[in-house]
Design a binder for these strands. Structure first.
Lengths: 144, 144
DNA sequence: GGAAACTATACTATTTTAGTAGGATATATA
DNA sequence: TATATATCCTACTAAAATAGTATAGTTTCC
């Protein structure tokens, strides 16, 4: 029942980029250094975010990555779901799940659906901008 | 971010026992047959429930297991937490977690705490009796 | 031209998951 | 008291997931 490093690093990566001035490029190496994460591993993670269009990349020297949209346009749910896959506690309640032969009588699925809704309710209600605001609060820069 | 078979089977096992007449013993073999789960694997799972005092066991011929308390005294959270361990999405927010060096500035932990609270809110609010009621509803035996 | 940076694919060690296997111990019943 | 039927206990294992490494290639700025 754990979120893997893939999702957790992706979230930190996106917060890192969101903390930068708009459209400023960050090289992967710099992000990896700031976040203290292996750059070769981050490479795989940012590739997913890039393919999904969440970040833009510029190749070559002085290249790097930047957010394609504003921080308020990304929810935590978008980022975790992209990198982790479905956040549902069991695969049988996913939309693309094959029909389970126990579905007629199964009541545990009701529990799992409630858990799923609760998780999605949280992660879809938090944007990168919220995280930036919390970061400011932690640093003592209180926002109104 | 998935609940493993251990927790899922434990839940089905407890529902199975709760569906039986009070204090009636069920042999592991019978439970395994009814639930269509490997009995040798269920053995390991029910051993945890037994050690925790959630079920009582009677050894020898005609022995078996039964619930030590009433269905309304077991929450889904108790059962899942016992068999799965902590349901938190990251280990760093657990009570027994060692202090993380990023905790000063980390804002993702706020997200994870909210997810954790949401999950616990669901699983601690559902008892085995609720599941029995839902089962009756599914079977067309509507309860008032 | 060369260095910096992204892209792509393959490989690997470790851990977790989902069981199996085999025997020891206890007890109801014949 | 013999025996069948249970629980109890420990060890083992195949497969998958996790968390990265490694290597080679492509693009572009200077």
């Amino acid at each position: 029942m754990k979120i893997s490093t893939k999702g957790r690093y992706a979230l930190r990566l996106m917060i890192d980029l969101a903390s930068r001035p708009k459209n400023e490029k960050s090289s992967l190496k710099d992000i990896a250094t700031r976040q203290n994460i292996s750059d070769k591993y981050l490479e795989q993670i940012i590739a997913m975010l890039n393919k999904a269009g969440y970040v833009r990349s510029v190749r070559g020297a002085q290249g790097g990555y930047y957010l394609s949209k504003n921080p308020e346009d990304y929810t935590v749910g978008m980022i975790l779901r992209l990198t982790e896959g479905s956040l549902s506690p069991v695969s049988c309640i996913d939309d693309d799940a094959q029909v389970c032969e126990r579905s007629e009588t199964c009541v545990t699925s009701i529990v799992y659906k409630k858990i799923n809704d609760a998780i999605n309710g949280v992660v879809d209600g938090i944007t990168l901008q919220d995280l930036l605001n919390w970061q400011d609060e932690k640093n003592g820069n209180y926002v109104i």
